[in-house]
Computed example of a mutant assay.
Amino acid sequence: MSIFGKLSFKDQAFKLRENAILDAATSVLGSKGYDLMTMDDVAGLVGISKPSLYKHFKSKEDLVGETMIRLIDGAVEQLAQLDDIASPRGKLAALLEWALRVRLDGGLPFLPATSAHVRDMLMRNIKYVTRVLKLNGQLEKLVKEAQKKGEIDAALPSDVVLFSYYARTCDPAVEYLQKFSKMGNEDIVRHMLQVAFQGFVAGSATP
């Protein structure tokens, strides 16, 4: 049974509107960034008044925090669905593929790498930090397993691999390729995965 089946009609409507608000915030953040985003932008996109928006989220920081938490939760849930992939590098590749598709569909990168203010704001959000630490621990474990199995160069410090992996989820090349190249999303994902795991070496196989 879904969570909605346990809620009253009023609570269901409230939750659905909250999800719509988070969708709108994701869209505005993707197009404008945090500094230019306003609560008016989000309310207008959802089609509600700003006072109604504040019934769900008390501030812009609160809204952005919940938006990023939802993204991290999505990554954790996606990773949990990859148990049928035996290879740790295969799991990392599959999760990166999911992240790239989220980006191409107008979602957000894993890390708010472009804004020190956003980073500082999120680091004060205990709920967000807890989620990030959970995901980071799972990915760090996969990186070390992949290195132990020889799937990723064991001579590289695991932190270098892990943070380079995070960087691929934020790579602006995704948007540039989508906007300026003639490639479709499937080709963009395929080529970005190859660059992430094989670099630019000729004859490299896909992950």
Rank of each mutant, 00 (worst) to 15 (best):
V64M: 06
K32I: 01
L16I: 07
S59L: 11
S8T: 11
A93F: 01
S52N: 15
E61S: 15
I48K: 11
L29T: 04
E61F: 03
R17V: 01
E77H: 10
E77F: 03
A75Q: 13
E18H: 10
A20W: 00
V76G: 12
D84Q: 15
A93D: 06
F14N: 12
L63A: 04
L82A: 10
P88S: 09
I85T: 01
E18P: 04
L53W: 02
G47F: 01
K15L: 05
T26H: 09
L36P: 02
F14Y: 10
L82I: 03
A75E: 09
W98K: 15
L96M: 05
G65R: 13
R89T: 01
G44S: 13
M37I: 03
E97H: 00
D40R: 10
L71C: 11
T67P: 04
V64N: 04
G65W: 07
S87K: 10
A43H: 08
T26R: 14
D35I: 02
L53R: 13
E18Q: 14
D23H: 09
I21H: 05
K91T: 01
V28D: 01
K60N: 12
Q78C: 09
L92Q: 03
A25W: 03
L63F: 09
S8F: 02
R70S: 15
D73L: 12
F14T: 13
D23A: 12
G30E: 03
L79V: 06
L36N: 13
D41Y: 00
E61N: 15
G74Q: 11
T26Q: 06
G47L: 00
L71Y: 08
N19Y: 07
L16C: 11
D41C: 05
W98L: 00
K58D: 09
R17M: 01
V28T: 01
L45C: 01
A25E: 00
M68G: 15
V64K: 08
Q12P: 05
E77W: 03
A43L: 07
S8N: 06
T26L: 02
L36E: 14
L92C: 04
S27D: 06
G65I: 02
L95Y: 01
Q78F: 08
S31N: 09
V46N: 07
A94M: 02
Y54F: 13
S27C: 06
G47I: 03
I85K: 12
T38K: 13
E66G: 09
K91Q: 13
G30H: 05
Q12M: 04
L71W: 07
L45Q: 08
W98P: 02
F14D: 10
L92R: 06
P51D: 05
F57R: 12
T67L: 07
F14C: 05
Y54I: 07
Q81M: 10
S27N: 11
K60R: 14
W98Q: 06
M39L: 14
P51M: 05
R17K: 11
K60D: 10
F9P: 09
V64Y: 03
D62S: 12
A80F: 02
F14R: 14
S49Y: 01
G90V: 00
K58C: 09
A86Q: 15
D35A: 11
V42W: 02
D11I: 02
